[in-house]
């Protein structure tokens, strides 16, 4: 009797990695990103929390003071001003989205040289924020600037946008809107390429035109572009720092500071020796950002579920 040689059911001995390949490989690929994300983002967040509980000049001994930094923030008017300015930035900066949309709609046509017009409109986004700030600061200059000259033609008195505490922030936001609008425009221009011509045709047969066409047919199709435009604009508003630093340096008398600028002034600038207080401001800024971050993550999660 011959025994049929059965195929060897016992596989050759495989290494631990081979056995766990499916489970381990994704983590291996993720490891570098996780490592850097942890070291540069996650851990510093917790460090900020812990530093905000200390009175520390960045050089000597840190002294634990509990929530005293936060208590002081509550009565700090400069903080209050910065917080309001952050809000102004958030609200006004969103104007970049409709403005970008309308410029995109305007440019979404085929005429000779349209590429040149598109690139001209996109140009401000290519400029460094520092250059934008300088150009606008000159534009606003009280005596020599272009704006006072224009206003003068219409017979209005002298204006000093950046020197007037009630106007300075809006002046800076306007400077920021210029490149931000260009950014939103480019997002919508690509979005418009993806608009389905058949749907537009069908809508036209049903008699839709003008605003109705825009509102009920075009804009819903632009939803992904709108979402990205919203995200980049909110982020842009919250990290407005360079324009303020260049145009007013937080002045006049601290009326154009936002939280990020105030944090820098308190902790890291020439006279800033209050690491704990700066960290407390950073924590507040983080919590504000967290609201938006949570919203973005949630809507992205919902999107993924939907498909």
């Amino acid at each position: 009797m011959t025994t049929a040689t059965l195929p060897d059911t016992d596989p050759p001995k495989r290494g631990w990695y081979k056995r766990n390949e499916i489970a381990v490989t994704p983590w291996l690929f993720l490891a570098p990103a996780i490592l850097f994300f942890a070291v540069y983002v996650i851990i510093p967040i917790f460090q900020s929390f812990s530093i905000s509980l200390y009175d520390w000049d960045g050089l000597g001994q840190a002294e634990y003071i509990g929530l005293a930094n936060y208590q002081e923030l509550m009565n700090d008017r400069a903080f209050e001003v910065s917080l309001w300015n952050n809000l102004k930035w958030l609200v006004c900066y969103l104007l970049a989205i409709p403005a970008g949309l309308f410029i995109a709609l305007f440019l979404n046509q085929t005429v000779t040289g349209i590429r040149i017009y598109k690139s001209l409109f996109f140009f401000p986004f290519v400029l460094s924020q520092v250059v934008v700030g300088l150009v606008f600061a000159w534009f606003y200059l009280p005596n020599e600037g272009l704006l006072p000259a224009i206003v003068g033609w219409f017979g209005f008195g002298p204006v000093n946008v950046l020197g007037d505490p009630s106007w300075a922030t809006y002046g800076i936001i306007l400077a920021g809107l210029w490149p931000q609008t260009a950014y939103c425009m480019i997002l919508y221009l690509t979005g418009l390429n993806a608009v389905d011509p058949e749907q537009v045709e069908a809508a036209r047969l049903d008699g839709a035109k003008g605003w109705k066409m825009l509102w009920y047919v075009i804009i819903p199709q632009l939803k992904p572009a709108t979402f990205i435009a919203f995200v980049v604009t909110i982020i842009g508003a919250l990290r407005s720092f360079d324009l303020i630093s260049i145009m007013t340096n937080g002045g006049p008398f601290g009326q154009t500071r936002v939280l990020s600028f105030y944090m820098f002034e308190k902790a890291l600038s020439e006279y800033g020796f209050r690491m704990g207080y700066g960290a407390a401001i950073a924590v507040v800024l983080f919590l504000i950002m967290l609201v938006f971050i949570a919203y973005f993550l949630w809507s992205m999660y919902r999107e993924e579920k939907g498909h």
């Binding site: 006049p252 008398f253 601290g254 002034e265 600038s269 020439e270 006279y271 209050r274």
Partner: peptide, 22 residues
């Protein structure tokens, strides 16, 4: 001023001076 007075005091005070001048 900003070398004789402590940094924090100097920073706040000079901002106050500017406000006062306006």
């Amino acid at each position: 001023f900003d070398r004789d007075f402590p940094a924090e005091m100097a920073a706040e005070a000079m901002q106050g001076f500017q406000e006062f001048m306006v």
